[in-house]
Amino acid sequence: MSEVVAVIDYGMGNLHSAGKALEKVASGQQILITGDADQIRAADRVVFPGVGAIRDCIGVLRETGLDEAIRDVIAAGKPLLGICVGMQALMAHSEENNGVDCLGVFDGEVAFFGEMQDETGSKLKVPHMGWNQVQQGMAHPMWAGIANNARFYFVHSYCVTGMSDDEVAGFCDYGRRFAAAVTRNNVFAVQFHPEKSADAGLTLLENFLRWQP
């Protein structure tokens, strides 16, 4: 029986492009786009994408019970990949929308780029959009075949801060250094969009489909 990879559909992910990219690199796996909590719990691997406002994201997850499904997947030791707002939702708290408590899988905080300054004291332009280099913070199976400082595609106005270095798998610089990828045990999450990041992004998705944490 083929492995099932569930892409969480809660109305806020770029599901079409993420699903198509996963299908492109899948090797016999079934890519299932679903908002059904039981199907997500039953899947072998789970992708948690996201775009839009964090308040709406967390609100929908809690209303539908998908927040508990995500926690159950993590507790079961199944590989989970967070993408963009999906990564931010795994943090403890975001200052977006006047402050929102997130899922608390990680202890990090999500802060607004527009209140930050670069080395010259100028406020950063938001959103941070386009290609930028990711410096790998550790050796990890998800980086297999991907060069250090490879370029990935970003679109975001908020970034993750306050993470311990042993959980930051990748860094990016945009006026200041921020976490571009975080990991703990069976969870790996990225601020960039691998489905929009050409060969490096497809390699990362392929690594996820093979990852055995």
Results as ranks from 00 to 15, higher is better:
Ala6Asn: 03
Met163Arg: 07
Leu204Ile: 04
Ala37Leu: 14
Glu63Ala: 14
Val46Tyr: 00
Val126Gln: 02
Leu80Met: 13
Phe152His: 03
Glu115Val: 08
Gly52Ser: 03
Gly137Arg: 04
Gly99Asn: 02
Ala75Thr: 10
Ile146Arg: 00
Ala200Pro: 03
Phe48Val: 08
Gln29Pro: 15
Arg151Asn: 13
Trp211Lys: 07
Ala181Gly: 15
Met138Ile: 10
Phe106Thr: 02
Phe112Ala: 13
Asp44Pro: 14
Phe171His: 12
Leu204Ser: 02
His93Met: 11
Val105Ala: 01
Ala111Tyr: 10
Phe113Pro: 12
Ser157Glu: 05
Arg210Trp: 08
Ser164Cys: 12
Asn98Thr: 07
Val190Trp: 00
Val47Trp: 00
Ile40Pro: 02
Gly50Pro: 07
Asp166Thr: 13
Arg62Glu: 08
Asp72Glu: 10
Ile8Cys: 07
Lys24Ser: 11
Val7Met: 06
Gly19Val: 05
Val60Pro: 09
Arg55Cys: 14
Ala180Pro: 04
Met138Ser: 15
Asn148Cys: 11
Gln117Met: 12
Pro79Val: 02
Gly19Ser: 15
Glu195Asn: 01
Gln30Leu: 09
Thr203Glu: 06
Gln88Phe: 11
Lys24Trp: 05
Cys84Ala: 09
Val85Phe: 04
Asp38Phe: 05
Trp131Ile: 09
Asn98Tyr: 09
Ser122Arg: 10
Asn98Ile: 06
Ile8Lys: 00
Phe112Val: 14
His193Ala: 05
Ile40Thr: 00
Val47Asp: 01
Asn207Tyr: 01
Phe48Arg: 02
Gln88Cys: 15
Asn97Gln: 12
Asp36Arg: 08
Glu95Lys: 08
Tyr10Ser: 05
Pro79Gly: 15
Gly77Trp: 02
Ala18His: 13
Asp56Met: 05
Asp165Gly: 10
Val105Leu: 14
Gly162Pro: 14
Glu109Tyr: 05
Ala179Val: 08
Glu3Lys: 15
Val182Phe: 01
Ile146Ser: 04
Gln133Glu: 09
Arg177Phe: 06
Ala43Arg: 00
Phe112Ser: 09
Gly114Val: 09
Leu103Ile: 02
Gly175Met: 06
Met87Pro: 07
Met163Ile: 11
Leu90Met: 14
Leu32Ile: 05
Gly35Ser: 07
Met1Glu: 06
Met116Ile: 10
Ala69Met: 11
Phe106Pro: 09
Lys196Ala: 07
Phe188Ser: 06
Ile54Tyr: 03
Phe48Gln: 02
Asp67Val: 11
Ala139Leu: 15
Val47Ser: 06
Cys159Ser: 14
Gly82Asn: 08
Val187Ile: 11
Glu63Pro: 13
Leu66Pro: 06
Asp165Glu: 13
Gly11Gln: 03
Gly162Tyr: 00
Gln30Asp: 14
Leu205Pro: 00
Arg151Tyr: 07
Ala21Thr: 10
Ala21Gln: 01
Val73Asp: 02
Lys24Val: 08
Gln133Ser: 14
Ile83Phe: 10
Asn14Cys: 04
Pro79Cys: 08
Ala198Phe: 06
Ala21Leu: 13
Phe178Ser: 03
Ala75Trp: 11
Trp131Glu: 05
Asp173Gln: 11
Trp143Ser: 04
Gln88Leu: 13
Met87Gly: 14
Arg184Gly: 15
Gly137Thr: 07
Thr120Asp: 12
Glu3Tyr: 13
Val187Ala: 04
Ala147Phe: 07
Ala150Val: 10
Ser17Glu: 02
Gly162Phe: 00
Ile70Glu: 01
Ala200Asp: 10
Pro141Leu: 00
Gln30Asn: 11
